[in-house]
């Protein structure tokens, strides 16, 4: 089966590594890729890492991106713009909880639209 891919973006490589471990304990099949820290592994985000993670996690069902802080969002939006691929969306939800819910839903074969709706229901924005 093909699944909606998940990309985790954080200012810290350790944060996304840890989140991926939590998710992998339960869900093994869904593509989950991480983009943590700068190219030098410092605190920050790297558009190259984000773009690479999108490419690897990408399936015909699309990719959902989760992020932690401010400038990660700008880099993620820019990575989506540059990728010129369809069905890539940035999600407004807590990084760990949001990605966890999305991966579980992806694993049972839900579409990207269904997952997005579900995330909004779980994590209503102010």
């Amino acid at each position: 089966m093909e699944y909606v891919g998940i990309v985790l973006i954080s200012h810290s490589p350790d944060v996304v590594k840890g989140i991926k471990e939590i998710i992998r304990q339960v869900i093994k099949d869904v593509p989950v890729e991480v983009a943590g820290g700068t190219d030098d592994g410092e605190i920050g985000t790297s558009i190259d890492k984000i773009s690479a993670a999108i490419d690897t996690a990408y399936t015909d069902k699309g990719v959902l991106l989760f992020y932690d802080l401010g400038s990660a969002k700008m880099n993620a939006e820019l990575a989506i713009e540059i990728s010129e691929k369809e069905n890539i969306f940035l999600i407004e939800a807590p990084l760990l909880e949001g990605a966890y819910v999305a991966t579980v839903e992806s694993s049972i074969g839900k579409s990207i639209t269904e997952i997005q709706k579900s995330i909004i229901k779980h994590f209503p924005t102010k």
Binding site: T38, G44, S46, I47, D48, G70, S71, M74, N75, L78
Partner: peptide
């Protein structure tokens, strides 16, 4: 976009 970093990277990159 890939080398500036911070908030300036995505902004000037855009």
């Amino acid at each position: 976009i890939s080398k500036v970093g911070g908030a300036a990277g995505p902004l000037y990159g855009t």
